[in-house]
Simulated scan of single mutants.
Amino acid sequence: MNWQVYLSGEIHTDWRDRIAQGTAAAGLDLRLTAPVTDHAASDAAGTAVLGEQERPFWNDHLGAGVNAIRTRTLIERADVVVVRFGEQYRQWNAAFDAGYAAALGKPLITLHPPEHDHALKEVDRAALAVAREPEQVVEILRYVLAA
């Protein structure tokens, strides 16, 4: 079984690396995909190609559109979507990705600290699993991919 797992959410910690290392060590037959995790490159995705705009709003608008081409395509192709909500920033884009995945009927795993439980109650309700650590995500994937 060759599954594709999309890793959405915060970009400031090593959680994606921990999942990649854990799934590789477990020998899981899957492919991990993600948004562009270089914050500056992601912000400049539109203007780098389409040019600077007169107002920052339009620069952001262009970047969001270019990034959405990647994000939507990879979520649509995914067998499972993991969405990480970190402690440092509010990840509005991660919440959007979770909602998009849920609307498509994709199995969703959320990953966040207990302090976010109340704020994420609707998102967690749509998820099939709520993990606290990346290693728990690896164990969920190990279980569902077991032969």
Score class of each variant (00 low, 15 high):
V80S: 02
L104S: 11
T33M: 00
D124G: 10
D79P: 03
H12C: 04
A40G: 09
D29F: 06
I75N: 07
R142A: 15
T23Y: 12
T73Y: 13
Q4M: 09
G65C: 06
H118C: 01
P113C: 04
L62W: 13
V144Q: 07
A78V: 01
Q91V: 05
L62N: 02
Y89M: 02
Y6I: 00
H39T: 05
G22T: 07
A64L: 08
V137H: 05
V81T: 04
L111S: 02
I75G: 07
Q136W: 09
D60R: 15
P56F: 05
H12D: 15
G86A: 01
Y89L: 02
E87P: 03
L128R: 13
V5Y: 09
Q21F: 12
A94N: 02
G65T: 09
E76P: 06
E54N: 14
H39F: 15
R18W: 13
V82D: 01
D117K: 04
R70G: 04
H39P: 03
I11T: 08
T37N: 11
F96E: 07
E135P: 10
V49E: 11
G46L: 04
A95R: 14
T23S: 03
A98L: 12
G105K: 06
R77C: 03
V49N: 05
W92N: 07
N67L: 04
Q21V: 13
A127N: 03
D14M: 08
W92G: 06
D29K: 06
Q88N: 12
